Amino acid sequence: MRFMVMVRANKASEAGEMPSEALLTAMGQYNEALVRAGVLLAAEGLRPSREGARVRFSGDRREVIDGPFAETRELIAGFWLIQVRSLDEAIEWMKRAPNPFEGIESEVEIRRVFEAEDFGSEFTPEARAQEERLRAEIASRT
C-alpha cells in the first residue's frame, strides 16, 4: 500500500523560512532509514504558496488563482510518499520522523493512495494498460 504523508504548512514555512542545519541533518538521516527499509518512494519540501497557483474548475471554465493562499492550516509544506503494508505501519514510521518544524507544534496527515484495483470495473482494461504504459515511461526517465 502506498501512503502520501503531507506535512502541514505554518506561518514559518509560508514565510519561506528554511530549516536549520540540524533539522536538515535529522531529516536526511530519517529519509535514509526509510530508503534502507525499502519504504520511501519520494520526499520533497514545497516552496511557499506565494510562489504557486491554483486552478479552479467550474464545468468547462478554468480560473487561475495566484498565491499566496490565506488559510495556512490547509496548505502543505512538504510530503513523503511511502510504500508499507498498512496504515498502522505508516503511522509507526511517521512517529519516528523528526518534527518538521523545530520547537513548535506541527502535524502530518497520512492518506492512502488509490491503487488500480480500487476503481473497479470503471477502470477498463484499456485504461489499465494506458496507466501501466505511462508508469513505465515515467520509470524509464529516472
Rank of each mutant, 00 (worst) to 15 (best):
I91R: 14
E89W: 02
E74Y: 15
S106G: 00
F114V: 06
V113S: 04
E107Q: 13
S106A: 08
F114S: 05
N99T: 12
F114C: 09
F114I: 11
A77V: 12
V84F: 05
G103V: 07
N99L: 13
E74N: 13
V113D: 14
I76F: 13
E109W: 10
V84P: 03
T72R: 15
Q83D: 14
V84N: 11
I82M: 08
Q83L: 01
W80L: 01
R111G: 00
T72Y: 13
R112L: 02
R73S: 08
G78K: 12
V84E: 03
E115T: 13
L87E: 14
V113A: 08
L75D: 12
W93L: 02
I110F: 13
E115S: 06
I76Q: 15
R112D: 06
R96N: 05
P98M: 06
L87I: 09
E102H: 03
L81C: 01
S86Y: 14
E102G: 00
I82R: 01
F101W: 10
E89S: 03
L75N: 15
S86H: 09
E89H: 03
F114K: 07
A97L: 10
E74A: 02
Q83C: 01
E115C: 05
P98S: 02
I91T: 12
V108I: 02
A77W: 09
A90G: 03
F114W: 14
W80K: 00
E115F: 10
A116S: 11
R112T: 05
P98H: 11
W93Y: 04
F79D: 02
E102C: 01
W80A: 00
K95H: 09
I76Y: 11
E89F: 01
E92V: 00
R85D: 03
E115M: 03
A97I: 02
E92M: 10
E89T: 06
R111F: 06
E71C: 12
N99W: 12
W80N: 00
W80F: 07
P100T: 05
I76P: 10
E109N: 04
R111E: 06
L87Q: 07
A97M: 11
I76W: 08
V113R: 07
E92K: 06
V108L: 08
V84T: 13
S106M: 03
L75V: 14
W93V: 04
W80C: 00
R112I: 08
A116M: 13
S86P: 09
P98D: 05
E102K: 00
A116Y: 08
E89Q: 07
A97Y: 13
P98Y: 11
W80R: 00
I91G: 04
D88F: 10
L81H: 11
F101Y: 04
R96I: 02
I76V: 15
P98R: 12
R96Q: 14
I104H: 03
P98L: 06
R73P: 07
G78I: 15
R85T: 01
E74G: 08
K95M: 11
I104T: 12
I76D: 05
L87D: 12
L81M: 14
I82P: 01
A77L: 03
E109G: 01
D88A: 03
Q83T: 08
I110T: 11
A77S: 10
S86D: 04
D88N: 14
R96F: 07
N99M: 11
S106D: 01
A90Q: 09
S86R: 12
I104N: 03
F79L: 14
M94P: 00
K95R: 02
I110L: 06
